[in-house]
């Protein structure tokens, strides 16, 4: 699956070092806003959001010297487009042992696009517990929102055309770190 993710005409917009720097900045911003790592829980949205959440948690540990609970939150059963495709396989949901009640939950995903994934994640979280607040961290914000949702922490804003595809590759899953864009923007307004 990962081998076919980037077509030959894809151009790289973030390389490994840039992804690392962006995640480090996001980690600092999360700690700054939360005034420390106390009460923080990072929930990654599978698949790549989980790896990103682990990387951010590791950076927070280096900054603050304490572990931040990391989990994953699968949104498949809460999607609004379930009936437009055959039933999808479920991905793991792992809520950290301490739960999310009264915590500051930071949702972590790779790309923010329509916002529908995040809407589904908010619904999914509703059934797990009641966090004190919920924030959103994404590696790439590519615009074109369908819903009134925005990210609190953005690795990089990348203006795109709707006809383009954004590919996030992570070493844990795809063997390398990169963000690439493929497809032609010609004839579409940015």
């Amino acid at each position: 699956m990962s081998a076919s993710r980037t077509p030959d005409d894809a151009r790289t917009v973030l390389d490994g070092a840039e992804i690392a720097r962006a995640l480090t900045r996001v980690a600092h911003e999360i700690v700054e806003r939360a005034k420390g790592a106390e009460g923080l829980v990072l929930l990654g949205i599978p698949t790549r959001g989980v790896f990103l959440a682990r990387r951010v948690a590791e950076r927070i540990r280096q900054i603050e010297g304490r572990e931040v609970p990391v989990g994953s939150l699968d949104i498949t059963l809460f999607r609004d487009d379930l009936r437009q495709a055959p039933a999808r396989a479920l991905l793991p949901t792992e809520i950290p042992a301490g739960g999310i009640d009264d915590k500051t939950v930071v949702l972590v995903d790779d790309v923010l696009y329509s916002g529908r994934t995040i809407r589904a994640a908010l619904d999914a979280m509703n059934d797990v517990g009641r966090p004190r607040s919920v924030q959103l961290a994404v590696l790439v914000d590519r615009g074109h929102r369908d819903l009134p949702i925005r990210a609190d922490y953005v690795g990089k804003n990348i203006p795109t055309a709707k006809s383009e595809k954004v590919h996030v590759l992570l070493a844990e899953h795809d063997g390398e770190d990169a963000v690439r864009i493929s497809g032609h923007a010609a004839g579409e307004d940015l």
Partner: peptide, 16 residues
């Protein structure tokens, strides 16, 4: 296996 985890949750219901 994923759905079995739901049994441990406070809200044992999905909108699917």
């Amino acid at each position: 296996a994923e759905l079995a985890a739901l049994t441990d949750r406070a809200v044992k219901k999905l909108p699917t």
